[in-house]
Design a protein around this nucleic acid. Sequence first.
DNA 1: GTCTATAGAAAGATAGAC
DNA 2: GTCTATCTTTCTATAGAC
Lengths: 205, 205
Amino acid sequence: MNDIDLIVRPQTAPRKRDADATRAAILDAAKAQFALLGYDCAVLRDIAGDAGVDVALVKRYFGGKEALFLEALKASFGTDGTKEWDRANFGHDTATMLAGSPHRNPDRTQRFQFLLRAATSPTTAPLLSQLVQERFLAPIRHWLGGTAADARARVFAAVYIGCLVERLVRGDALGGAERQAYIARVAGIFAALVADPPEAKETTA
Amino acid sequence: MNDIDLIVRPQTAPRKRDADATRAAILDAAKAQFALLGYDCAVLRDIAGDAGVDVALVKRYFGGKEALFLEALKASFGTDGTKEWDRANFGHDTATMLAGSPHRNPDRTQRFQFLLRAATSPTTAPLLSQLVQERFLAPIRHWLGGTAADARARVFAAVYIGCLVERLVRGDALGGAERQAYIARVAGIFAALVADPPEAKETTA
DNA sequence: GTCTATAGAAAGATAGAC
DNA sequence: GTCTATCTTTCTATAGAC
């Protein structure tokens, strides 16, 4: 963040000497790098570099790459929980978010990207299936309620994930009528999943 | 495949000396390894090992890791095209496939896994966005037709991808009533996308 | 608390023997 | 056509100086 310190005093006082700040800086850089590159391609040197410190400190504060990843993982599963979801507007709000550019909500996007990469990396995937169950699928299932809640939660999660993946692949945001149609379709799918009986009509907005 | 040759004649005639067979064996092993581990984690030595040959032959036949990957990529985009999709039963058939275990259709699963890993690897992702547009999204858009075909194609692709990701994360197949509910929901979503007007009712099967 | 220096492993590329 | 041997790079991990 603020590497002016490094330039001004190169050797004598190597850094600000604040353990908590250093730790936090490393963790932030790690979350960003793991989200961007995945566990296997992320490099401790670069993470340390982004945080403005030396690699050795990563070991000092976290013990190693895997431990650092686990810490970043826990932080990225932070509760954007189902608590505050509103049954009436959820579908439309979420669809609007998914139709937009990833840059609109960089923090959320980074967290999702982190989890997607973690889930698709052969090294870290085993760590996730349980966490996904507990902290993603179970809350959705509970929030949805009703009959066949498990199946509906899975479809729900699949659509959500798929839209996010699709958004990552297409870089730019949709616009105009296509955007409106996209939102309407996705909102309709979510609405039908929230409404318990499968005969429920798709609502357009 | 047949490494008895190696055991019987260890040095004198190292292998069967069949260029085409060797090339094909390497390519098959590469497709499997890239699908399983992704570009970054896949190791040429192991690919060669699976094919029953030495690493040096990979260079000889393909030139290097990246060239080998590109070849495997082209092969994995093989046309399971929209040509033979049946408008009436497509939704239900696809949903049934998606509800099953990945082991039911290992070849298709491997191709998808290859593409998913390729799309999420920072190294290979840039190679894909164009190919995805041309050989995945465009055919779907064309097959769907009607109004807002692009938006519908994107939602279609998102649901498809999401279901496949979800299936990869949950290892085991669904069963019983949950399975039926899952199929009904997913089939309904596809049916609504195939039917042009967004006011279309979700059909259960 | 922070950095320098180095060890050790792994993997891609390449040259040359058979 | 196929394999052995080696070079070079890259990254994690660790020990030790300031």
